[in-house]
């Protein structure tokens, strides 16, 4: 009989309509921004720079090696290396980025910079509410805006941060052991005033 197919379809819509009052599976709307779904731990959007401790300049892990700048597919990273050096987390004198810009209007959140970084200095952020009133300077993230503390990273992705912390602690320990084993060991570089070259 003509019309039975349509009636069957209407039964499905009726089931969905009534079910939306009782069945959580059928009522999936989330009233953003009042309600929010929790973000998954692997969620990523734009990169940021990590610093250890409290001082964003002294603790910055980035050594301006420019690997991420080179590997970034849309080339949204711009780095200028410093002339002088500052001690890194292991006390070894290293360069630091004088300028570190990420154009988040160009960035495509591919996290290749995170994968290639040998210093665990750049990680993916979870902050996605980034709307601005203009599209040039406001979307160009400078070093100050990018630098975020390790505590922040521990908070947004705890299990990754734990892995990274363990890896860095092991590296620091190995370096300290090597230094102690070497005859006539120099005092830790952190204590020595850094010579500019």
């Amino acid at each position: 009989m003509i019309g039975t197919g349509i009636l069957k379809g209407m039964a499905v819509t009726a089931r969905n309509f009534v079910g939306s009052y009782f069945d959580k599976e059928r009522l999936v709307t989330v009233q953003y921004p009042e309600e929010r779904n929790p973000l998954p731990e692997n969620y990523r959007n734009f990169p940021f720079l990590i610093y250890d401790g409290d001082d964003a300049h002294a603790g910055l892990r980035c050594v301006a090696c420019k690997i991420c700048e080179k590997e970034c597919p849309p080339q949204c990273i711009y780095i200028v290396k410093s002339e002088d050096k500052k001690p890194d987390y292991m006390g070894k004198p290293q360069f630091y980025p004088k300028v570190f810009d990420i154009d988040v209007s160009v960035c495509m959140s591919c996290q290749i910079c995170v994968e290639v970084c040998p210093f665990e200095a750049i990680k993916m952020d979870k902050d996605f509410e980034l709307s601005t009133r203009e599209r040039f300077d406001a979307l160009l993230m400078r070093k100050d805006a990018l630098a975020k503390s390790n505590d922040y990273y521990r908070r947004i992705s705890p299990s990754d941060a734990r892995e990274v912390d363990a890896k860095l602690a092991a590296a620091a320990e190995a370096a300290a052991k090597k230094k102690a084993a070497a005859p006539g060991a120099m005092p830790p570089a952190a204590a020595v005033p850094v010579a500019s070259n």
């Binding site: 197919g5 069957k8 379809g9 499905v12």
Partner: peptide
């Protein structure tokens, strides 16, 4: 199943 019920026998879709 639901999608099938919704469209497969539906006269308009046919």
């Amino acid at each position: 199943d639901e999608l099938e019920q919704l469209i497969v026998g539906n006269e308009v879709v046919i």
